Amino acid sequence: MNILVAGGTGFIGTALVEELLDRDHDVTVLARDPDGADLPSGVERVRGDVTAYDSIEAAFEGQDAVVNLVALSPLFKPTGATSHTDVHLGGTQNVVEAAESHDVRKIVQMSALGADPSGPTEYIRTKGQAERVVEDSDLAYTIVRPSVVFGEGGEFVSFTKQLTTPYVTALPGGGRTRFQPIWVGDLAPMLAECVDENRDGETYELGGPEVLTLADVTRLVYRAEGKSVTVLSIPMALAKVGMTAAEPVPVVPFGRDQYRSLNFDNTVADNDIGSFGVEESELTTLASYLGVE
């Protein structure tokens, strides 16, 4: 099968590309700077920006399926002039239009837990709006909503370290926000199966083997470095003031949306990993990945 992976040079994309190659697919990677990426041999590279339709349209010719992974981070505020709306909504509209124009049969859309067109953050809202674009298209589709994804090259551990300090650290609400982190090496095969198998019209919510609070994650991250940490609590109202005030400061990676995201959990109600023949006990824990289990 000929598969186009939009965002294939990213953290999740590179893992998925290797998985698709192992399954004997012909893979084309679409990215803003594909030439500098560390990709396996045999992968075709195409330069394009999903926010600019004319730069990506030709890449869809002859493709059987497209996987749309292009996204901005939910953990850090966007830098530069590009917004979540530009990338998630506008980018998905362009990907869908190009796919329909070139008779691509299917799209696998990477979304996010809690995606909702009326959600509390721009990230969540635009992910929900992008889902609507996919659902209203003429394409067969599968939507995947993972919790936070960790692994080599991922942001989750570095985000935690930027938000905290070793030994003694203060976290909004004491770090009670809950996550269900999933390892990229476990997620990639599930994404590949969404391409391989007839899962048209399905939406899957995927989480890892355990639920961890931000305080739990902080302790694990520093334990992996041989350091202890005591977590102190910052009242949420005070955290709101601080992160809102930091919004216009370029060197501060957090803002109002990051505060809002700490007010709701990033966990699944029902883990759909079972749909892929996987049990939670088979998945890699964050502690195991960090070498502290």
Rank of each mutant, 00 (worst) to 15 (best):
N2H: 13
I3M: 11
A6G: 07
G7R: 00
T9E: 01
V17T: 12
L20G: 01
L20D: 03
L20M: 04
D22W: 14
D22Q: 15
D26I: 12
D26R: 13
D26H: 13
A31M: 08
A31I: 03
D33W: 13
D33E: 15
D33R: 15
D35R: 12
V43S: 10
Y53P: 08
A58P: 11
A59S: 07
V66I: 02
N68G: 02
V70A: 08
A71W: 05
F76L: 11
T79G: 14
A81R: 13
A81D: 15
S83G: 05
D86E: 08
V87Y: 10
V87F: 07
G91A: 01
A99K: 02
A99Q: 05
E100L: 00
E100W: 00
E100R: 08
R105K: 12
I107R: 02
V108E: 09
A112L: 06
L113R: 04
G114S: 03
G114W: 09
S118Y: 13
Y123A: 08
I124P: 04
K127C: 04
Q129P: 07
E131Y: 09
E131G: 06
E135I: 13
S137T: 06
L139N: 05
A140C: 14
I143G: 13
V144M: 09
P146D: 10
V149M: 07
F150M: 01
G153S: 05
E155D: 14
F159V: 01
K161D: 10
L163Y: 04
T165W: 10
G173T: 02
G174K: 00
G175L: 01
R176Q: 14
T177G: 07
T177K: 11
R178N: 11
F179A: 05
G185Q: 02
L187Y: 02
L187G: 01
A188I: 06
L191K: 05
A192N: 11
A192I: 00
E193T: 13
D196P: 11
D200F: 09
Y204S: 06
E205H: 12
L206P: 00
G207N: 03
V211E: 13
L212D: 08
T213A: 01
R219S: 11
L220Q: 08
V221R: 12
Y222H: 00
E225I: 02
G226T: 04
G226N: 08
V229F: 07
T230N: 15
K240V: 02
K240C: 07
G242K: 11
G242I: 06
A245S: 10
A246D: 08
E247T: 01
P248R: 05
V251R: 06
F254A: 00
G255I: 00
R256S: 13
D257Q: 07
S261R: 06
F264S: 10
D265P: 00
V268C: 13
A269M: 14
N271T: 01
D272S: 09
I273R: 05
G274E: 14
F276E: 03
S281V: 09
T285Q: 09
G291P: 06
V292E: 05
E293P: 09
